[in-house]
Amino acid sequence: MAAGGDHGSPDSYRSPLASRYASPEMCFVFSDRYKFRTWRQLWLWLAEAEQTLGLPITDEQIQEMKSNLENIDFKMAAEEEKRLRHDVMAHVHTFGHCCPKAAGIIHLGATSCYVGDNTDLIILRNALDLLLPKLARVISRLADFAKERASLPTLGFTHFQPAQLTTVGKRCCLWIQDLCMDLQNLKRVRDDLRFRGVKGTTGTQASFLQLFEGDDHKVEQLDKMVTEKAGFKRAFIITGQTYTRKVDIEVLSVLASLGASVHKICTDIRLLANLKEMEEPFEKQQIGSSAMPYKRNPMRSERCCSLARHLMTLVMDPLQTASVQWFERTLDDSANRRICLAEAFLTADTILNTLQNISEGLVVYPKVIERRIRQELPFMATENIIMAMVKAGGSRQDCHEKIRVLSQQAASVVKQEGGDNDLIERIQVDAYFSPIHSQLDHLLDPSSFTGRASQQVQRFLEEEVYPLLKPYESVMKVKAELCL
């Protein structure tokens, strides 16, 4: 049975990233139509530049190519590739079939990587351009969430054990800070992308030097003109047959890092959902379990974690691919890159769409948070109580021993009897502590235990987050809708 299948058929496997999760716009960027249309555009740009620099290419040939950029006979191309065992030459023939007058000058002087690699770089750039505003929107939604809850005390956790208090907004800023680093890295790697350009079979530009009869300047002009037509500021000066596969490492490393950030955020949300302090959106008709109707599973956060793990592992592909590119190139890269580049971007696209949807509907339960604080705060307040007693004339050592005994009794009630923490009640009825009984409410005010959390939130948002989001103001209103 021949390899390949009808990918629109229910009898043929289709990647869930495309069929179930990723956005239509990201799927289109990695589609065959987008790819092969870009090949034709690159052939047109090459012909236009070659004509401008004096090669015998007519206006009629150029116009014929322009008129057929979208006229792609995919069936013919597939048949040609089956016959020739070469995808680029299959599309040269297919393009030439609908451009008979231009057929002889299509791909003039070029090698397969002229269309293959340059198209990949265009796709990487455009895919990054799709991700950047999506990530900015996630940051914006979380920034709104953090600002609104900047002063809401909550129990902090280290080692997932109760620690000092923080605020809900401050905790959210930990998430935002990681995503801001990801946004900066995505922008950097996007701006650092260079075009492969017009380089020939081993990167020496020998074929173009021959076409222009040894004119170095025209060869350099050709490279520059096509690079500018493709919208790049610069091209690699040095290439082998391909652009260095280190570029793929750079791009997928940034995406993998984004995956790590999203995994951490969504894990926190899942843990908070278990504590009943916070939940992701839950639709009115949504079913959490087929057997347990009360369940409210954090399905979206779980999906993000599941896909983020996949995204983090994909960076190993370009690392290994770059390491086995012998001399000017081997074909070890080809099949692998067809999979890992598309999957990385479709996965990143999915987790950003999902995280935006989550961040637009996060639900906080202040009463649950308050109750958990009441359970733990008495123990945390013991040092403040000791200091207040010393100020009232008591002995630190005597007070410490009193607190120690009462704390152990209260802990026994919590752990052995399943009761509430009654340390404060014990202190309130103990005559030894009568000098500070009137101060206990103040000493137990949760806001006095959150330090500068709310001020940190305000400063972080104003100095770091809002300036970073400013270039994306025009796209901030787009909502994230999930079908599944």
Rank of each mutant, 00 (worst) to 15 (best):
S9C: 07
G200R: 08
K479I: 15
M89A: 01
L377V: 09
L179N: 02
F433S: 11
L152I: 03
S334Q: 03
V29E: 15
G116W: 04
L42S: 14
M89D: 03
E360G: 01
T242Y: 02
F145D: 00
G116D: 09
S151Y: 02
S323C: 15
Q458N: 11
S412T: 09
H437L: 05
Q458K: 14
T166S: 00
E462D: 00
L222S: 11
Q41V: 06
S140F: 14
W175R: 06
T330H: 13
E481S: 09
L183H: 00
I369D: 12
L377H: 11
N336E: 06
D11W: 14
S31I: 14
S448W: 10
D223I: 03
I176R: 04
Q439W: 02
T354G: 13
V198C: 14
I72N: 09
Q221N: 13
F449Y: 10
Y114P: 04
S9L: 14
Q439E: 11
S438G: 06
S12K: 15
N353R: 11
E279A: 01
V405F: 15
A388G: 08
V115N: 09
S15L: 08
D129N: 09
L314R: 12
D317L: 15
K75L: 00
H159L: 06
R37G: 12
V88Q: 15
D420V: 15
D430G: 04
W43R: 06
P162S: 08
S359G: 15
L258Y: 13
A22G: 14
S474F: 13
Q61S: 04
V262H: 05
C399V: 06
L108Q: 02
S67R: 13
V457Q: 13
A2N: 15
L44G: 12
D73T: 15
S407C: 07
M312A: 14
L84I: 08
L155I: 03
R374L: 11
S112R: 06
L174K: 01
I427F: 04
L423E: 10
R190M: 10
I238G: 00
A230M: 10
K101T: 12
T154P: 13
A348C: 05
G259H: 00
P366R: 07
C266R: 09
P293R: 10
D333C: 07
Q241E: 02
Y243E: 15
Q375E: 15
P24Q: 14
L55T: 04
Q458C: 09
Q409N: 10
G393A: 02
S412P: 06
Q205K: 02
K170A: 02
A47N: 13
L44Q: 12
R190G: 06
L132N: 11
D398H: 13
T242S: 15
P435W: 07
L193W: 01
V168S: 06
I122E: 00
D215S: 00
R372M: 04
S151E: 07
Q409Y: 15
R309F: 11
D73A: 09
D32G: 08
N185M: 10
Q210V: 02
T350F: 02
I176F: 02
W45R: 02
M225I: 12
T267F: 04
T347R: 13
G4L: 12
F345T: 08
M278P: 06
V138K: 12
C304F: 13
R309Y: 08
K264V: 11
P446W: 00
C113I: 02
L319A: 01
S359E: 09
E383T: 08
E328I: 07
Q456V: 06
M292F: 14
A163M: 08
L461A: 00
A3W: 03
E463N: 05
S454I: 08
S407W: 07
L352T: 09
Q455K: 07
V254Q: 09
Y466A: 13
L179G: 02
Y34W: 03
F145S: 10
D398S: 11
P298L: 06
D332K: 03
E302K: 07
K187S: 11
F379G: 11
K367D: 12
D178E: 03
A163I: 11
E70K: 15
A235G: 05
R296N: 02
Y13C: 15
L209M: 06
L222E: 01
R459E: 12
L346H: 00
G361C: 13
E213H: 14
W326Y: 11
P281E: 15
I265H: 14
G451E: 01
L331N: 12
F145N: 05
F460T: 15
M387S: 09
M181V: 04
D32T: 09
F345S: 11
E64P: 02
A18N: 14
L307F: 13
V457L: 03
M181P: 00
W45P: 08
M292W: 06
P378S: 12
E81C: 06
S334M: 14
G259L: 13
H107A: 01
G419M: 00
A480L: 08
R137D: 07
E48G: 10
C399F: 10
D117N: 06
K218I: 09
E463Q: 12
E280S: 14
H93S: 03
Q41G: 03
T166Y: 11
R14K: 06
E79C: 05
R141Q: 01
Q41E: 06
Y294I: 10
H159A: 01
T167P: 08
I237E: 11
R194P: 14
Q205F: 02
R234S: 03
D430N: 02
L55Q: 11
G394D: 15
L128A: 05
K415G: 10
K295E: 00
S112H: 10
L331Q: 09
M299F: 13
A127E: 15
K284V: 04
M316W: 03
I237T: 07
L271R: 08
K218A: 02
L255D: 06
Q41M: 09
L461S: 14
Q205S: 08
A102E: 13
L307G: 11
A49C: 07
I249S: 08
S323N: 07
P133Y: 06
D349G: 10
V465D: 12
A146T: 10
T204C: 07
D191L: 11
H7L: 13
K284R: 06
Q51S: 04
E383Q: 00
D32F: 04
C27V: 11
G393P: 09
F327T: 09
D215G: 12
V475G: 09
R296C: 07
D441R: 06
L272C: 15
F208V: 07
R188L: 03
K75V: 02
Y472D: 11
F30Y: 05
L46C: 07
T321V: 05
L186A: 01
K101M: 11
